[in-house]
Design a protein around this nucleic acid. Sequence first.
DNA 1: AAGGCTAGCAACCGCACCAGA
DNA 2: CTCTGGTGCGGTTGCTAGCCT
Length: 336
Amino acid sequence: MGRAPCCDKASVKKGPWAAEEDAVLRAYVAAHGTGENWIALPRKIGLNRCGKSCRLRWLNYLRPNIRHGGFTDDEDRLICSLYATIGSRWSTIAAQLPGRTDNDVKNYWNTKLKRRLLGGGRRPIRYALSQPRLILANPTGAGAASSALERMRLSVQRRHGIPQETTPGFTFYGSLAAPPWPAQQSLFPATATNYSGISTASAYSGFWSHIQTSTSSYTAGRVSVQDQGAGWDSSSSGGTTPLSSSTTTGEAAAGIDSSSSTPTASSVTFGGDMEDEIDMLLRQIRSFEEEDNGQLIGLGHAAEAAADGSAGSWSSCSTPGVDSVFHEYVQQGFGQ
DNA sequence: AAGGCTAGCAACCGCACCAGA
DNA sequence: CTCTGGTGCGGTTGCTAGCCT
């Protein structure tokens, strides 16, 4: 049984807001604030709009100190870094950018940054790329090379010298001879959920769960990671993987259209709690930064550099201060 | 000049979370 | 404890201006 709609969709006005509507909403919020019920607000002020639409209009457009467009290089880098770290948590990313809204950041990422860094996308690029595009050696499916996820994954694979798997799917995780981060070093006091209870496999899958667009096939794969990761201790991570399960089909790596499902909070978390997750992410960041300061593992030839630039290298968008951003994020109560 | 195509962006949709009844 | 309704969030869609052929 579905829940009742918040308003009568058939009777409320949709589409672009008129200047008069903006003025009415702005005047009301200026006088009464936003503490009241958004659902009841439009009726109260005589707007034939859905309450959610009013809220969205206010947050994304009418709110004071909103900035539109003109993203700076620093903002670009911060968005890239945070996206690489926490995935598509646009509200969290936007919280680090004063005056920016999650919608703005999301649109900016989807229309500019993603294309710039990863190439490809829903719509073809008309302009020439400054660097050659990476051609996947393993085009297992029609969309394999165009998947942003795959590009990110390949980027990290290259960074860590992980050979491309001929088997599609999540075997990437299992192919790690050793986790790419230092030994466990929790930033948090002991909690009910002990970090040591989480395998490197599930930790890594947790990291990727933030970057991966949520597809139905991926969700199936992730579930298998969770289910099986519990029994996969670090001592077994160098060998065969429990991830090459029947749920990881070629589709999982083939760049399935992300429109097939709506990601949810529960679908982007893993078997640990929030603190575990943040802890793991911080170590991941540190690991990347240590690599940047030292030598890249297993990348010895010039072709990699060219490929890196075209397929989405973290180094091209990492921000030195991302660690502090995350500390701040944690201190602020995980962005709340 | 006109039609087609694309990028950019505003807005909508649907789901999950959470608080209060 | 369960249910209900409001809110927040991320993904997707649709519109429009501008560019290209």
